[in-house]
Design a protein around this nucleic acid. Structure first.
Lengths: 342, 342
DNA sequence: TTGTAAGCGTTATCAT
DNA sequence: ATGATAACGCTTACAA
C-alpha cells in the first residue's frame, strides 16, 4: 500500500521547495523550464493528484453542490438529480446527495452537516414534516451565512431564495381541460392534503378550470388523501361511492389506484372513465393502459436549479441580492388512459 | 450576512487561546469549570459548528462514504443507496452519491475526485463500459492507496475487494423451477449479453435448472438483448417467432415487454404463458398483471455493503487483509403473472 | 489550568 | 527563478 503523494514529498524527493513544486505544476511562468519539466514528469509518473480537502480549506470553496431531497426511491427526484448533475459537471461542480427521509430533524442535521464546509450551496426539496411544522429556521440560517439555496418542487413563499417550480396550476388546468374536451362532465379529483403544496396547487388548477368552464364544483368528487399508506383503500372507496366519467389524479400512484378501482367496479378505462395522472414516470409509460399524464420534466428542473445556484456562487457579492423563480413548463403527454379528443 | 464562526473568533472574543476554546468545547477535563461554561455558552449562543473540511484535513479522514453507480434513475440502485444511507448514518458516516452514467471515463474521473480527500472509501457498482473494456486500473489504484472498496451487484473476480452480490444463479434457478412446477415445458429466456455479469449468471441458473430437470436446452428459446434501446422490438420478434408456455426475463423491463408481446400475439398472461421477472421494483408491483418476480433486496445489499466498508475503515491496519463476499439471498415473490402451482 | 506551536496539504505573498 | 512563511480551521503534544 502506497499512500497518496503530496507536494511536500515531491519537494523532498526532488530537493526543491514546496512552493516551487506547487508553481511548477500549475504552470507558473516564473519557474525555470528545466525544473518545471522535471517536476511535472515526476508528478505524472507517480500520479500526483492534489488533495481536494486541502484545496477546499484554502480556497474556502468546495466546488460541490449539496442536494437534499425527501427520498431517493422516487422517480421524479432521481430525474432532478440527474439534471443537476449534468449541468453541475459541465461547470466543474460536483454533487453530493443527502436524504431527509421526509424527516424535519434529518433535514436540519444534513443541512448543518453539509453547510459546515462540505458544499458551497444547496438545492433542496423540503421534507413533508418541515412543511407541516412550518419551521424554516434552518433555511434562514444557511442563507444568513451567505450560502446560496435553491428550492425546487416543494417550495414555500416564506423562504427568500431562488426557486424552481413547475406550473402546477397551469398543468392541472391543462389536464382537466383536456378531460372536458374529451367530453367528460363529472370529473373526480384525487389529491393530497393541502400542506403538500403541489396538492394544493393542482387542486387549485382543477377548481379554476371548472369555474372557467362554468361547471359547478361538487365537493363529493374531491378526495384528499391524508395517509399515503392507506391511499389505495381510500381511492377504492371514493371510486365505488361516486359516479364519474373522468378522474384527475395528482400523481401516478393515485392514478393507477384509480384505474384499478374503476376496473374492479366493472368499468373500462378509458371507454367508461378517463384517467389523467401527474408526473411522467416509469409507471405512466409502462402501465397498461399507459397513462395520459402531465409531465414535470424533472431533469430540466434540476438543470435550471443548478444554473441558478452556480450563477449565485460565481457572482460577486456586491452585485446585490435578487431572487428568481424559474417556472418549468409542464406538458400533457397523451397516452391510452383517456378517450381521444372529440 | 454573518459568516461562519470559527474557534479563532471565539478565542478573540473571549480573550483566551484557540486551544482553550477547542478543549472547552470538547469537554476536556483540563479546562476550568468557569472558562468552559463561558465558552460553551458563547458557542451555543452564536451557534458554533466546527468546520468539517478542517476536521477532515486534520484527521485525515472524512467520515463519508462515496457511492458511485451507473445511473440514478433506476429503482434498484436507489434502494441500495437507501440501504447504505441508513446503516452509514447510524454509524456516523455521511454518504456522497456520484454517477458514472455507465461511462468508463466518468467512473474514473469521479473516483479520482472522491479519492482526493472527499471520502474514506467506496461503494460501487461498475459502469457497463468498464465491464466491456475490462480496464480496472482505477480500482487497483484506490485499493493501493489504502482506500477500502466494496463492489456490489456488478462485480468482477479480477478486482480484489469486499463484494456484495445476490445469488443470481440460485435466484434464476428458483424462478425457472417455479415455472416448471406450474407445469411449463417450454420456457423462454430473455437475458442480456454475457459481459453484463448478472445476465450471464441468471442465464447460467436457467441452464442449470433445466439440466437438473433433464430438460433439453433449446437455443432458440434464449434471447440475449444487445441493444437496450431496441429491446422492445427484439422481444416482440422473439415472442412472435417462438412458441413458449413461460418466459423468464432477467429484469422487469424485459418481463413487461414480454407480457405486452404475448398479449399482442393474442395470448393471455398467465393463462397461456407465465412470465417471471427479476428485480422487485415499482413496475413489478403495480403492473397489471402484477409480476411474479425474484426480489433482489437492494436495501439489504446496501446495508451489507455499508457494514463491510465501515468495518474495514475502522479496523486497525495491522489486522491483515481479507476480502469477504456477502451473498444476499433473493426470494421469489408470487404475484399474478404466473399460473399458480399445480 | 491555560497558552504556544506544529501539522494536515495547499496557495499566495513576500523575500532572496 | 526559487525559497521561506503565513494562512485556511482545527487538534494535540508540549510548555508554562
Amino acid at each position: 500500500m502506497r499512500p497518496k503523494l503530496t507536494l511536500k514529498q515531491i519537494a523532498r524527493e526532488l530537493d526543491v521547495s514546496i512552493s516551487t513544486v506547487s508553481r511548477a505544476l500549475r504552470d507558473s511562468s516564473e519557474i525555470g523550464e528545466e525544473t518545471r519539466k522535471k517536476i511535472k514528469a515526476f508528478a505524472k509518473f507517480y500520479n500526483y493528484k492534489p488533495n481536494n480537502i486541502a484545496l477546499s480549506l484554502k480556497n474556502r470553496k468546495t466546488k460541490t453542490i449539496g442536494i437534499i431531497i425527501p427520498e431517493i426511491v422516487h422517480y421524479f427526484f432521481t430525474t432532478v438529480i440527474s439534471g443537476v448533475e449534468k449541468v453541475a459537471n459541465e461547470k466543474g461542480y460536483n454533487v453530493i446527495v443527502c436524504l431527509s427521509n421526509n424527516s424535519f430533524d434529518k433535514e436540519v442535521l444534513n443541512m448543518e452537516l453539509l453547510a459546515n464546509g462540505s458544499t458551497d450551496g444547496f438545492i433542496m426539496s423540503m421534507a413533508k414534516e418541515t412543511l407541516q411544522k412550518e419551521d424554516y429556521h434552518h433555511f434562514a440560517e444557511v442563507i444568513n451565512q451567505g450560502m446560496p439555496l435553491v428550492l425546487f418542487d416543494r417550495v414555500i413563499d416564506e423562504i427568500h431564495c431562488d426557486k424552481v417550480i413547475i406550473d402546477d396550476v397551469i398543468g392541472a388546468k391543462k389536464a382537466v381541460q383536456y378531460l372536458l374536451d374529451t367530453g367528460a362532465k363529472k370529473i373526480g379529483l384525487v389529491s393530497t392534503v393541502d400542506y403538500v403544496s403541489v396538492g394544493k396547487l393542482r387542486t387549485r388548477g382543477y377548481l379554476e378550470i371548472l369555474r372557467e368552464n362554468n361547471i359547478e364544483v361538487d365537493q363529493n368528487l374531491i378526495l384528499k388523501i391524508e395517509d399515503m399508506d392507506n391511499s389505495e383503500a381510500e381511492i377504492k372507496d371514493f371510486i365505488d361511492k361516486n359516479e364519474v366519467d373522468a378522474v384527475f389524479a395528482v400523481n401516478e400512484h393515485f392514478a393507477i389506484h384509480a384505474i384499478k378501482a374503476i376496473q374492479e367496479k366493472g368499468l373500462k378505462v378509458p371507454e367508461d372513465v378517463s384517467v389523467i395522472g401527474f408526473t411522467n414516470g416509469e409507471l405512466s409509460k409502462r402501465f397498461i393502459p399507459s397513462l395520459t399524464t402531465v409531465s414535470q420534466h424533472g431533469e430540466r428542473m434540476g438543470g435550471e436549479a443548478a444554473k441558478l445556484l452556480i450563477d449565485k456562487l460565481e457572482r460577486k457579492p456586491d452585485e446585490g441580492e435578487s431572487y428568481k423563480t424559474v417556472i418549468v413548463e409542464t406538458s400533457l403527454i397523451e397516452r391510452n388512459s383517456t378517450k381521444s379528443l372529440i
